[in-house]
């Protein structure tokens, strides 16, 4: 009778130690986030002096003052961010799914070659095309507008989403297309009435990641937007820090940073089941 008892005991120990290790690791990963959230409730002078993660005084004034701390208030920044993100999502979904449908189902000259070219762009770092792209948009007179951030999305530039959708479309049985052909559908109607409704998991995945990547993007808005009234939320957050050595509003910055996580968090919460289904479709990384 001792054997089962000891094995059960050791199993329990293993379980406990595993959880302790996991908890420690999770805490390590979350620490910066917790520190930021905690600091957003502290007065400016206590942020770097009080080491405790739990503020001694809960001060919500950072949130109220942070919203209006800059020349332009955060209502505008959020509006800008949401506008750009929403248009990026719409553009990506429309353009990428159309492109993917063409690659997955239509026959055209050099299809394999174009597919390989498209996949090749996946390997190109953004920074390689940065300068030529800037010159292009400068000559078009688009710098200091949202166009460089939005228009390309309607031209299916995101090879990763195209690839993801091509893989998904290929998994839809061709007999369904053929049944639709017999029912009188052309390629457009098959795409719109058959393919898209059957592809909600991959569309949701693409939508979520499009949103998050655009909302979080710092580099592209930094390069193309100069006027503060056009700033997106990440750009605005940077404006709290005065790089010329003047006074930096740390408390307000942390408050607004914490707040800026909220949309991403909510989108994730709302769509996490779809994301899991989407991730299961294929390895997802970027």
């Amino acid at each position: 009778m001792t054997m089962p008892g000891t094995s059960r005991k050791s199993a329990a120990w293993q379980s406990v130690s595993r959880h302790v290790i996991l908890l420690l690791a999770a805490f390590g990963m979350l620490y910066p986030l917790i520190w930021m959230a905690a600091s957003s409730f502290k007065p400016d002078n206590m942020i770097f002096t009080q080491p405790s993660l739990i503020p001694s005084v809960w001060d919500f004034s950072n949130y109220a003052s942070g919203w209006h701390a800059l020349r332009v208030d955060f209502t505008t920044f959020y509006k800008n961010s949401f506008l750009i993100s929403a248009l990026a999502v719409i553009g990506n979904l429309m353009a990428c799914s159309l492109t993917a449908y063409a690659f997955a189902r239509l026959n055209f000259r050099f299809r394999r070659f174009w597919f390989a070219m498209m996949m090749g762009t996946l390997m190109l770092p953004y920074h390689v095309t940065l300068v030529p792209q800037y010159i292009l948009f400068l000559n078009l007179g688009w710098v200091n507008t949202y166009l460089p951030l939005i228009v390309p999305r309607f031209l299916a530039v995101d090879a990763f989403f195209i690839f993801l959708m091509v893989q998904f479309f290929r998994g839809i049985p061709r007999e369904i297309d053929e049944a639709a052909i017999m029912d009188g559908c052309g390629p457009w109607r098959i795409y719109w009435r058959i393919m898209l409704p059957l592809s909600t998991p991959v569309l949701a995945t693409a939508a979520i990641f499009s949103f998050i990547w655009t909302y979080d993007d710092f580099l592209a808005p930094l390069i193309y937007l100069n006027d503060m009234r056009q700033y997106t939320v990440p750009l605005a957050l940077r404006a709290f820090i005065d790089s010329s050595g003047g006074e930096s509003l740390y408390g307000e910055m942390f408050a607004m940073s914490t707040l800026s996580l909220l949309p991403v968090f909510l989108v994730f919460l709302a769509f996490q089941r779809l994301i899991i289904r989407g991730v299961a479709l294929g390895a997802l990384k970027r």
Binding site: E175, I176, A179
Partner: peptide, 15 residues
């Protein structure tokens, strides 16, 4: 679609 035929597929191919 214009041939006036209808086909029943092996996998049924229902939408």
């Amino acid at each position: 679609a214009k041939r006036g035929l209808a086909m029943v597929f092996q996998s049924y191919a229902l939408y």
